[in-house]
């Protein structure tokens, strides 16, 4: 299966926007970094037509090492969740996008 990487996205920005390859790469990096910073601050990142990245707080629970069966505490932590928009879900299924709502 093909994997799309930073290099592909940089190339697309280069051809679509007409910036230099270097600047295209820098801007892609800046976009990702700004999103990371917001998430790091516990803020949600909502990209209409694509989806929402949000941070969820998880409480302490008792886990178990599946190999040894030993109980270990899993400390409270913050995890990232992504909720795809209806538009993205429709694209992935090749179905018509929902009318109106593009969240």
């Amino acid at each position: 299966m093909n994997t799309v990487t930073r290099a592909h996205l940089t190339e697309t920005i280069y051809t679509e926007v007409g910036l230099s390859r270097n600047e295209s790469a820098d801007l892609l990096e800046t976009v990702l970094e700004r999103m990371c910073r917001a998430l790091e601050a516990g803020e949600s990142v909502k990209i209409s037509g694509f989806g929402t990245f949000s941070v969820r707080q998880k409480g302490r629970r008792i886990g178990r090492n599946p190999k040894t069966g030993v109980e270990v505490p899993i400390l409270p932590r913050r995890v990232l969740v992504f909720r795809p928009s209806q538009v993205l879900k429709a694209h992935v299924n090749h179905t018509p996008p929902p009318a109106g709502d593009d969240e």
Binding site: V55, R77, V79
Partner: peptide
């Protein structure tokens, strides 16, 4: 996102 907090070994 987790501010480098350890999550235990599980």
């Amino acid at each position: 996102v987790n501010h480098g907090k350890r999550t235990g070994e599980a």
